[in-house]
């Protein structure tokens, strides 16, 4: 999420994934002699933050599940909500890939036309 723009957490999840990928990428760069302690300090901090965010999300999920159970909110009512959310996220992911593909094709068409 950028300051001033709304966000559901989808953007946040992207950054969590990117932060988790940082150690892998830095290992690759270290093997090629292109890393440093300063870079690893940044990588370590961001990756630890990402892990803490995942732990917080997991903890929240457990608490919510228990609250739903305690409130007598039957799993068969909660399940459609979870499924809807999962479908929504999947549709968004596919949509973003399609948009990107469309944009690439459009760019290629524009390049061909210019040539």
């Amino acid at each position: 999420m950028t300051a001033g723009l709304p966000g559901t957490g989808l953007g946040g999840l992207l950054y969590v994934l990117l932060a988790l990928l940082m150690p892998v990428r830095e290992l690759y760069l270290t093997a090629r002699g292109r890393s440093s302690r300063e870079r690893w300090a940044v990588v370590g901090q961001q990756a630890l933050m990402a892990l803490a965010i995942i732990a917080a999300l997991a903890g929240t999920a457990v608490v919510v599940a228990r609250l739903l159970d305690a409130g007598g909110y039957a799993a068969d009512r909660a399940a459609p909500l979870v499924a809807s959310a999962a479908i929504g996220v999947s549709v968004l992911a596919v949509l973003s890939v399609l948009l990107r593909l469309w944009a690439l094709l459009d760019r290629r068409r524009a390049g061909t036309a210019a040539a």
């Binding site: 999420m1 950028t2 723009l5 709304p6 966000g7 559901t8 957490g9 989808l10 953007g11 992207l14 929504g88 968004l92 949509l95 973003s96 948009l99 990107r100 944009a103 690439l104 459009d106 760019r107 524009a110």
Partner: peptide
């Protein structure tokens, strides 16, 4: 169009745009 050749930037911008739209509708 100009940022498409820049994978990180175009992905981050695309996700921010979609997220902003979805968040607005959801909230």
């Amino acid at each position: 169009r100009g940022i498409l050749p820049l994978p990180f930037l175009s992905t981050v911008v695309g996700v921010a745009m979609i997220d902003a739209l979805v968040a607005s509708l959801v909230y």
